[in-house]
């Protein structure tokens, strides 16, 4: 569904991605793992057009996305959950969701469905989002992305710094989305979380994919983790 071929990108003179290739199909979770600075977050930002790619191609069902103005990319059905959540902190929960709904012109049915996934948010619709707890903020960040009814979901460390019950909830949500046919790219630092969710794990080393392995049958002590992630 989403194909990335030979993607080059970086910030100013610093090139971070060096010909990154990956592909993810509908109903599949691809996990990106790698050391800090390997280019995992940059890969997501380059797909979203937030870091303009210097070379290579991004295709969604054959349609070229790279080179489009960055604000048009999400309208093709890409939902993005940035690292650190990046909520519109001074807007209310309802307003954050409204921004998500506006992106592709979805209305009340989508909103209801998303709030059905996260009933805690429904109780806090009028609350300023910056005052939510960390877990609730992460729910809102995911809910906001789901308001686009995405075909591809990009999640950048969604469970970072959360308590175990919240991690379970977010994992269940990702599995439910996978079951509904959404293609998911997940950046994850923790091996157990990656193995629990991913169909395939792609190891990012200095801006390119060093190795892609099926998650099934992979043990936490597999050599790939030691070689590429350092755990």
């Amino acid at each position: 569904m989403l194909e990335v071929a030979g993607l080059d990108a970086g910030y100013g003179n610093v090139q971070v991605l060096h010909g990154l290739d990956l592909a993810v199909a509908g109903g599949e979770v691809l996990c990106l793992m790698g050391r800090n600075g390997a280019g995992k977050s940059t890969a997501l930002k380059a797909i979203m057009g937030l870091v303009p790619p210097a070379g290579g191609a991004v295709r969604l069902d054959g349609v070229r996305l790279d080179g489009l103005p960055a604000h048009e990319i999400p309208r093709h059905g890409l939902g993005y959950v940035p690292q650190g959540r990046r909520l519109f902190a001074e807007l209310t929960v309802a307003e954050n969701l409204e921004i998500g709904l506006m992106a592709r012109g979805h209305g009340a049915p989508t909103r209801e469905r998303v709030l059905g996934l996260f009933p805690r948010l429904r109780e806090r619709l009028g609350q300023v989002s910056g005052t939510l707890s960390g877990g609730e903020q992460q729910m809102l960040a995911i809910a906001r992305a789901l308001c686009l009814e995405p075909r591809v979901l990009l999640l950048d460390e969604p469970t970072e710094g959360l308590q175990p019950s919240m991690i379970t909830l977010i994992r269940d949500t990702i599995l439910a989305l996978k079951a509904s046919g959404v293609a998911t790219i997940l950046v994850e630092q923790r091996v157990d979380a990656a193995l629990a969710l991913a169909d395939r794990i792609a190891f990012v080393v200095t801006g390119r994919i060093a190795e892609t392995l099926p998650a099934a049958g992979l043990a936490p002590e597999a050599p790939a983790f030691r070689a590429h992630v350092g755990v």
């Binding site: 057009g49 937030l50 604000h71 999400p74 940035p82 519109f88 921004i99 906001r144 686009l148």
Partner: peptide, 8 residues
């Protein structure tokens, strides 16, 4: 940046 990521 996040606004851009949501189609603004």
């Amino acid at each position: 940046e996040t606004a851009t990521a949501f189609g603004i």
